[in-house]
């Protein structure tokens, strides 16, 4: 929640600097030195602040995973946040992606078992489907064992 609040503060500041530049565009009172300094300062803030925030946001999970089949590389169960954070890779893709999925107790238990008995699983895959709403995508994990009869 604090991350969202921080982002809203950033966006409000960014919009304010753009608003200030718009005001200077139409008022255009730049004869005083401090107005010129303030305008250039606002321009630099409007220019650089989103770049700085982008560097901070990179690596965060995407809560809206696109539909498809993925290979699961790793996961973190966040029971308090009621979410799974998963690192997945689409077949044929070079770059893995980080997604946030809705929490389910049965899946959490299965993932916990896979964490403890990692070597008995050959592959863990994930199928993301369209859920009841955009915020709740459907996610089905498939656990393929090395020896299926076990």
């Amino acid at each position: 929640m604090s991350e969202l609040l921080n982002y809203l503060i950033f966006y409000a500041l960014f919009a304010a600097t753009i608003g200030f530049l718009f005001a200077m565009l139409f008022i255009g009172e730049l004869r005083r030195w401090w107005m010129r300094t303030a305008t250039v300062g606002a321009g630099l803030i409007a220019l650089l602040m989103p770049l700085f925030v982008t560097a901070k946001i990179l690596g965060y999970p995407d809560p809206w995973p696109p539909e498809g089949r993925y290979e699961v590389l790793g996961w973190q169960i966040a029971e308090v946040d009621q979410a799974f954070f998963v690192l997945v890779k689409k077949p044929g893709d070079d770059v893995p992606h980080h997604y946030k999925l809705p929490f389910r107790l049965d899946t959490a238990l299965k993932l916990q078992e896979a964490e403890q008995l990692g070597s008995i699983f050959r592959n863990i895959s994930l199928v993301v489907t369209r859920g009841l709403s955009d915020d709740l995508p459907g996610a089905v994990f498939t656990f393929e064992k090395v020896f299926p009869d076990e």
Partner: peptide
């Protein structure tokens, strides 16, 4: 920036 930040979600950070 909003569009950029929505597309950065889930992508690995080099920092």
């Amino acid at each position: 920036p909003l569009m950029a930040h929505l597309t950065t979600l889930g992508a690995p950070s080099p920092y």
